[in-house]
Computed example of a mutant assay.
Amino acid sequence: MNINEAISGRRSIREYTTQAVDEQLIQRLINAAIQAPSAVNQQPWTFTVIRDQGVLDRISRGAKAHMLATMPAGTQSEHFHSVLNDADFQIFYQAPVLILISGSSQGQWMVEDCALAAENLMLAAYAEGLGSCWIGFAQRFLDTPEGKSLLGLPAEWLPVAPIILGHPKSVPAPVQHNPAQIRWIG
């Protein structure tokens, strides 16, 4: 698969089979992630792999409560309140794997560096036949003392990219992308 096929074919997957993801495959995806560029070659990322559904359920409950308590009113808050108040909704969609990419050093561009690693990981997952999705609902909670404690993360680490992985049950149709807004100067 060439890179353009991976870029245009990757989707955010929210339905997974129960099939486990092989540890060697997870390692290959992390190896793809660390090929990302980073400012001043700092490589500030760390990877926490969670495959325990009990831990994922505890994080989901904590993240839902945290989001409900801290979510500002806005255009989608009514929808989010409905989803987050649903006791049966698990924010990780019962995916078999969560890979949390955190920044371990406080460089000026650490968040951007970790996001670049996350994109590499998601494109590599797609090329391997896996689905992935960045779970924004988990980000703020995982940066709280309670969230870090659940995963044993050091206090100075900043959770940046919670990425779920698994074998997709189905793949959503492509979404329509708006044309690029380009300003040419010169």
Rank of each mutant, 00 (worst) to 15 (best):
P44M: 10
Q19V: 05
G62H: 06
D52V: 14
I91S: 09
A118R: 10
Q53M: 12
F89S: 11
V49E: 01
D86I: 14
I91G: 07
D52W: 12
G62V: 11
Q53W: 03
G107L: 11
A32T: 02
I13G: 04
T48N: 06
M110A: 07
Q27M: 05
A124M: 12
A117S: 13
D113V: 12
A117E: 01
A125K: 09
P44I: 07
Q90P: 08
L100D: 00
C114N: 01
H66N: 07
S102E: 02
I34D: 00
I13C: 04
L68D: 03
A33Y: 00
Q53C: 06
D113G: 12
Q35A: 09
L98Y: 00
N120V: 06
Y126E: 05
S12Q: 06
Q43E: 02
Q35M: 10
L121W: 01
L116Y: 09
W45Q: 15
N85Y: 02
A63L: 02
Q108R: 13
S104C: 15
A39Y: 05
A36D: 03
A95F: 00
L100C: 01
N120D: 02
R14V: 03
F47K: 14
G103Y: 03
D22H: 12
V83Q: 11
Q24E: 09
T46I: 10
Q42S: 15
L116G: 11
F92E: 10
T75D: 10
I26G: 12
M110V: 05
Q27W: 02
S104K: 15
R14Q: 08
S105R: 15
V97Y: 01
Q106D: 10
E78H: 10
A115M: 14
D52E: 12
H66R: 08
G74H: 08
A65Y: 05
D57I: 09
